[in-house]
């Protein structure tokens, strides 16, 4: 028995010495770089005062606020000037949490090139949305899992001021496959990847998501399987224009 234990200790020792050696077959491309995709969440063109009073306005002039704002972005890919596509990430939860925000997704070892386009999907594809369990950003503990209704793609909670000048709850919990918006494609300028780290800043203009939506009659939008309605479909259309390219830095 002692022999076994000692040989295990010896194996660990050898393994740890081995791990000190550098190199290997999967050495990174020396000219590849890192790309960060940063989602800059805005309301009326301003950084959002999370948990603040209803000071932002939708297209109908209704004032609203934001306590919670988080959403899923999936399959981010970059296209270069030769039309070559680099697939970056799978599923990323973007969370404008006031204490622990998560607005940036880092991709290492992106092939060198001049990238002219970024494309991504809003929400999760049908297959992923139906998974019973998830890890990482898809873990159910992020408050984006809705039991048998699957995932929420976007959660916005806050308040709005109604016609009678009262502070009312505003809840948009969008999930279900009808809210999915695939292939949101934005032209970008200035992204040359070559052994460097660049950040692509993408604006998410929250109020644009609500174009044509009246909070007075729709202040509590809960996605339910089989109940996708015109509100869900207008949001999945609006959301494509709610994202815009800001800059590369």
């Amino acid at each position: 028995m002692k022999k076994v234990i000692f040989s295990i200790i010896a194996l660990f020792a050898i393994a740890s010495m081995q791990s000190c050696k550098r190199g290997g077959s999967s050495a990174p491309n020396p000219t590849a770089g890192n790309v960060k995709i940063y989602f800059n969440n805005l309301a009326n063109g301003q950084n959002i005062d999370m948990g603040g009073t209803p000071i932002y306005t939708n297209a109908l002039g209704q004032k609203f606020s934001v306590n919670i704002l988080k959403y899923y972005i999936s399959q981010i890919r970059l296209t270069d000037d030769k039309g070559v596509v680099a697939n970056l990430g799978n599923f990323s939860l973007i969370d404008e949490d006031p204490t622990t925000p998560k607005k940036e997704v880092l991709f290492a070892n992106v092939p060198p090139g001049n990238y002219t386009n970024v494309t991504f999907n809003f929400g999760l594809d049908k297959v992923t949305n139906a998974l019973p369990t998830g890890e990482g950003d898809l873990d159910h503990s992020h408050g984006m899992w809705w039991g048998t209704e699957k995932y929420l793609f976007l959660k916005h909670e806050g308040n709005f001021i109604n016609a009678a000048n009262q502070n009312k709850g505003l809840l948009y919990h969008l999930g279900t496959d009808g809210a999915y918006a695939g292939n949101i494609s934005l032209p970008i300028t200035g992204l040359t990847v070559n052994a460097n780290t660049k950040t692509v800043v993408i604006n998410f203009n929250l109020e644009k998501m609500y174009d044509g939506i009246n909070f007075e009659t729709n202040n509590n939008m809960m996605s339910e399987v089989g109940k996708d309605n015109e509100i869900v479909s207008s949001i999945s259309t609006n959301i494509k224009t709610a994202f815009s390219f800001n800059k590369v830095q």
Partner: peptide
């Protein structure tokens, strides 16, 4: 209450 969570406001 102005402090009430939006989920309960509705």
């Amino acid at each position: 209450s102005q402090y009430l969570d939006p989920v309960m406001q509705v």
